[in-house]
Design a protein around this nucleic acid. Sequence first.
DNA 1: TCTGGGGTCCTAGGACCC
DNA 2: TCTGGGGTCCTAGGACCC
Length: 426
Amino acid sequence: MLFALVDCNNFYCSCEKVFYPALEGKPVVVLSNNDGCIIARSEEAKQAGIKMGVPVFEIEELIDRHNVHVFSTNYALYGDFSQRVMSTLAELVPDMEIYSIDEAFLDVSFKKPEELEAFGRTIRETVMKHTGIPVSIGIAATKTLAKTANHLAKSNDQYQGVLYLKDDKNSEEMLSETAVKEVWGVGEKYEAFFKKAGILSALDLKQADPNRIREHLGIVGQRLVLELNGTVCYPLNDNPDVKKEICTSRSFGHPIETYEELEQATTTYAGKVATKLRREKSLANSMLVFVMTNKYARGPQYVNYKIVKFPGPTNQTAALIHYAVIALKALYKKGFKYKKSGIIVSDVIPQSGQQTGLWDETQKPKNTRLTEVIDRINEQEGIDTVKFAIQGTDESWKMRQHNLSPHYTTRWEDLLIVDLDKLGKK
DNA sequence: TCTGGGGTCCTAGGACCC
DNA sequence: TCTGGGGTCCTAGGACCC
């Protein structure tokens, strides 16, 4: 088995650049929801010393000094680019697993070893040609090794974006250059443990005794060692299961104090969760509702959650709103400045094979047909064209997005217009 | 003034059963 | 000094990922 990990470089920033070529060579960053933190950086922004995850207000000076272009997160744009990249990849290999919005594992076992490097370059060029997105590729015998190869391919110019770990000697060389923290699956806690045990490089970890690692870190740690040694513990999953949990939560644009506003926001999230459930063709059996104040602010703090079990599985907006309100009424306490709330549904099961309507009034055909009509209208006319009254129309709590780019590929009004006269003069 | 959001897997411990 | 043994299911929390 041979895996190729294809990873888009600075994905969100690269998406912003595609329709804004003047940004080429300039520092660019993309912010989290509510324009809070840095979640993506172009190479130039990294060189300017901007770190991942820092709150933007802490580095305003840096942004000014380097004239950094700042974008609010434009998920519609990135999601659409992701689909374009993934469908391009799907045409090049017999089998693949979409691992995240900007990464995929490809099965490249069908290629001869001597063809692999060239094939990697073909993949890069094709994705660039079809989508304008640059990618890096790591090829190796396990996912963990492919990840490591990818990391080197990206960070080391000499590989020009493609690195294939042909044999053990080759991969040991690479692993000795890689800090253990960079290994896929090693987080803060594991790194601290490894440091104490004298395991500093990825090679140290490869050569560690898997049984000893297992004693301390369990099977997850043992698999790390095995995968680095070329034993596949994580096979290609080309048929991902339906989601087991679905969540919608947001920080508010401003602190909320009244119950009514909190209810508008939270029932809006309940509606989003219901839509996601229906898109997955799934039903949920229970819901967790949480509210919290701003942990960074001074003043009284309150964090709480409530779990509601449904009488029968459902994906109906009206039902989810109903139960969210019950939970919220129990949770709400006067006198706090709420910063964030959210809905998580769990115990999610596929809709197919379910005899809907047997247990629960809400899943009866009469109700689901109404929902289908609403879904269709909202799909054609835009999100929340039709919504429930309790979700409100005020929306002053909505997140801030001061630097949002156009929805170039998903909204007619935002289509780019090309001026042929101007082009002709060039 | 301002600090993201959405997931998965594994484990330990409690409840319960015979 | 002694206090059974073996199993399943569920859940909360930890760790990690992008």
